[in-house]
Amino acid sequence: MAEASDPGTRASAGGWPRWLRLPPVLGMVLALMAIWYVAVVPMNVKEVLTAAERAGVEVSPPSAVDRRDMGNWALVFRNTHALGNSWSSDRPKLPAPHQVLVELYDSTIDEELNGRRGIVRSGTLSNRSLVYHALVTLNATFLGFLIGALLGAGLAVGIVHSRVMDMSVMPWAIVSQTIPIVALAPMIIVVLYSIGVQGLIPKAVISAYLSFFPVVVGMVKGLRSPDAMQMDLMRTYSASTASVLTKLRLPSSIPYLFASLKIAIAASLVGAIVGELPVQKGGLGARMLAGSYYGQTAQIWAALLVAATLAALLVYAIAALERRTLRRMGMMP
């Protein structure tokens, strides 16, 4: 009797019958999808009603001007009979999930296999396909990430070994993390464009800049992570600075390095996408802006979905590399 009301023992799946118990993450995703489908109705109700009116269905109130000033939910409840096309309208404010998936399919697999400019007919990736745009973004992301991470790790080694560098640069590195560096992106693009540099490099510069500081800060922390006893041990061997670095500092910094690399690659992708906004020369950012110019919401959502997938894959790849490395180094079971 006493145990039943015990606040400490909460049933994990509540009182649901067994067949309704879903794995938590799947349950959440399905719930979000359901919310999305429901939200599509009020979001698109005005456009849908206008289309229905044109098709001869009676809607209330009949005047589009009156409807414009009304709340979306009110319109939904007064016109429940005319909402059949909510999930299939042409230019929805909020496309339904399946519309986004169709757009994604059309602009990747279908475009490449059946399109006039697709890889099957022309031998090169179509510049209308998201595969092409994703690769453009990915190139800049990788290049920028590599430059930023290498420079960052290098500076960190310098900071750890030089007191002057540490005291002069470190405060600025920390402060720089608090400023919205992305705001610089369009300027860097335009400035580099004006001196004739365009394409991959300017975007990579932004990506490099964004991934640089997390790596510096994380790596300095990592290189300093050996405790006093470990450092004293090295001193009893009268080890050179170089061997302290390679035998103690670098190995201890690996977990910190990977933690900041994960942040850096995500930041690098954001940098590349934002860098594609000012100059319309391909890439996911360019696709998003084009979609927003022409009211093609499904196109924005599809580009967003691809960007999200890329981000997830990149972070996952680094995490996988981290697991392998740490396991090989014996720092993880």
Partner: peptide, 18 residues
């Protein structure tokens, strides 16, 4: 955790439209 790593800034065009 997954969402926190995504380039959410990409939703800007959609939200500006809304």
């Amino acid at each position: 955790n997954f969402m926190a790593a995504l380039p959410i800034v990409g939703t800007a065009p959609i939200l500006v439209m809304w």
